[in-house]
Structures are given as C-alpha cells and as structure tokens.
Design a protein around this nucleic acid. Structure first.
Lengths: 214, 214
DNA sequence: GATCGTACAGTACAGTCGTACTATCAAAGC
DNA sequence: GCTTTGATAGTACGACTGTACTGTACGATC
C-alpha cells in the first residue's frame, strides 16, 4: 500500500484536482461537478479539495483559469507549428486552432461553453477576463494583415481592422456550428480557407480550397 | 371531441410558468431555476408546476422549445420589416437579428447559451434540434445570394453556398463577441455591414459602412 | 524524543433539490 | 343536490449540496 509523502507538492495536487473538475465538466457537465464528485474523480477526499481550494467558488475559478491558459497555449502552438510560411498560412494556422477538430478540443470547448454560460449571469465569474486571449489574437491578426497589405498580397479596398475582427468572429461562429453538429470540422476548415482565399489576391492562391482540407 | 375547459386555460398557465422559468434563467442562470424558484416567480405553488409539466425535465424541455420558437419568430419578423428592399438589405435584416442589440435580445441569448452548454453534455436535450432555425436560415441566405449573383450584384468569383455559411457563422461569432463584452452592438453591426459591402459589388454600395450604423 | 504544523480522512449539519402523496375547493354532469 | 373531476395547495421524504468541525498520522524542528 502506497502512502503519500507528508510534504505534498501543492502545485501537483491542485493540478490533479483541477484536471478532475475539467474531466467531469467535459463529460457530465459543469453542474455535475460537486465537491464530492470532483474529489472522487481525483481519488482524494472532499477534505483534501477543501484544503487546497477552500471553497467551491475558488475551485471553479481555478478551473476557468486553467482552461483559459490552455486555450492560450494551443493558439501559440498553432503559430509555432508554422514558422516560415506565408502570411496566409500563418493566419490559417492561428484561426484553425479555434475550430474543434478532435475529441480533446471538443471537450475543451464544452467546458468553455459551460463557463461562458455561467459567466453571463455570475458577475464574479465575468470579472475574470477569460476572453483576453481572443483580444490579443485579434491584435496579432491585424498586424499580420497589415504586413500582407503593405506587401500587396491582399485584395484591394480591404480594411485590415475590420478583416481581423471578422476573421476572428468567423472562426468563432464556425466553431459554434461544429459544436452544434451543424457542420463537420472538415467543412468548417474548408469555409475558413474559402474566406482567406477571398481576402488574399487570387494570384497567391495556387490551389483550390478543397485541396487545403486536412 | 372538444371539451370546455373546466376552470383554467392550460395554454395560458403553461405559458406563464415557462415565462417565469426563462426570466429566472436570463437573470440568475438556468442553474437557479428550480421547481420552487420558478413556482415563486410565476406566483403559483410548486404543485401547480408539477400539475402542468409533471417533471422538471419536461419543464426545461418546454423552456427550450419556447426559446427556439421565439428566435424563429424574431428572424421572420426581421424579414417582414424589410419587404421591398434590395437583396443586400434583406440579408442585413435577417442577420442583424442574431446580434443582441438590446437588453431583451441579450436576455434571450443568455438563456440560449445556458441551454446550449447543457445540451453539450445532455443527450436528451441535444436530441431536440433547437438549431433547426439556423439551418433553415442558411438555406434562405443561399437562395437570396443566388438571386443576387444571377442579377450580377455580387463580386466575381463568389461561391454562394460558402458565402451563406460564412455570413451565418460571422453573425454568430459577432453575437458571441458582443455577449462577451468584447465589442459593442454598434461595432458588430458595422462589421457585418463591412462584410456585406465586400460581398456585393462596389457600385451598389453608395454609402460607407459607418453610415449604415443604426 | 517531545512538540508542532502539515496533509489529509471522516463526519455532522443546515439547507435545497425533485417528487410523491394527501387534502381541499369549486365547477360539471347526472 | 349529489357525485365526479379538474385544479390547486401543503407537506413529507430521501437524496444531495457546500462547508464546518474533529481526529490523526507523519515529517520537520528543537
């Protein structure tokens, strides 16, 4: 029988409990995440959850924070995976990270949707700016588009500020439609590619949108 | 055979209770809508709610159904309010209904977000196709765009199917950004107008996007 | 080696949940 | 007028909730 070392690693314990919370939120819903179910999922007692988070409100808070950081990391990873490519491909690499293409991303989106709905009626949760990542992403998109416009890669008469906002909103809406099972992930990424093809001048688009599907 | 209602109007009672449920869901969240709080908000006893809906699951079901029908009615009203206008103005009239511009629409969106999050982990709720309205809207958009394309009003090289899907996703994403307080409703409608201006040939757009803001 | 604080487990408590059950009261049908 | 039935209220029950409290084994410190 294994016994816990008496001096525990707080960060590891907290991470384990938060992971249990997010697993439950993704599979059974955030409303099913009680002190008892989270403790059982993490393999600890309720008192341990109390010891590391004090109150359930703080536990939920930690869960949202973890989720927001995870989204931020995934978006950054999307750029790092495409270092030397064109601006168009970089834009695609950023935006496609918002569309849930596998079960893990879908689970993350489920948790995010639950927190989002909760924040709409809970001022304490809304104060935590969990959408800051999106704001930062919009700034990055605008900068990329400005570069492309100066290089003459964009269609004429485009407003880079408006295009950045609309691309982000488009990716968000496409993600919604995938989550609602109105569209397959492949169809959503194809639509995203179509929009980028319209934005960039035709000469730079050497392949049809369908060929870009992963 | 028709029978006179003995005492109460069932439809009126059910509507009153569902309205109470949706008020609570919009103000305090769907998790705060219990049998007791809904009954108190409707000014009836818990037994009355039980009498008309039997179980809470069926009450929640009725609330979602009412909400979906309300969204459908609002979108239809959006078209009826603009009967003789251009295709571009009709498109705008449809799509702008998705963006919450006042407190009532924001409340409706809050309820919808709560149900959406719940449906992601509740198979019984997900089976009810509450997104059918969006599917039908996409069909209408595609038809409108096809007409406009045949009339030569669209920019060249546009795929009406992709444009319809992307316009709907864009409006959804803009609605999300407004709900998350990342953008004002005015900014969202301006972005929507910008996108429509890009889609339609420049000659038909006689005023800058900013002038179209309501 | 006694003492102290950390890291848990167990339990108790007050409250809320959905729902079942019983009672009541007025209108409908005979 | 009596019986039946629809429409409501009140209440009770078991399950679950978050949290406070108590106990306790063990590593660190002196």
């Amino acid at each position: 029988m294994w016994r816990m070392p008496k001096l525990a690693d707080h960060e590891e314990r907290r991470a384990r409990i938060v992971a249990a919370l997010l697993r439950i939120a993704a599979s059974r819903g955030l409303h099913a995440a009680s002190m008892r179910t989270v403790a059982a999922e993490a393999g600890v007692s309720v008192s341990t959850v109390q010891y590391y988070f004090g109150t359930k409100e703080r536990l939920l808070f930690a869960g949202l924070q973890h989720q927001a950081e995870a989204v931020g990391r995934r978006i950054e990873a999307g750029l790092a995976a495409n270092p030397g490519g064109s601006v168009r491909d970089s834009l695609y690499a950023w935006l496609v990270q918002l569309i849930p293409v596998n079960e893990q991303q879908r689970a993350g989106y489920t948790v995010f949707a639950a927190y989002h709905a909760l924040a709409l009626t809970d001022p304490a949760l809304a104060e935590q700016s969990y959408t800051r990542g999106s704001d930062e992403l919009e700034v990055v998109l605008r900068a990329l588009l400005a570069d492309a416009q100066q290089a003459g890669e964009l269609s004429s008469g485009r407003d880079v500020g408006a295009e950045a906002g609309n691309l982000l909103a488009l990716a968000t809406g496409l993600a919604d439609s995938v989550m609602a099972d109105m569209r397959t992930p492949e169809a959503a990424t194809a639509l995203l590619n179509y929009q980028l093809d319209q934005l960039f001048v035709a000469a730079s688009s050497t392949s049809p949108a369908a060929a870009r599907r992963p």
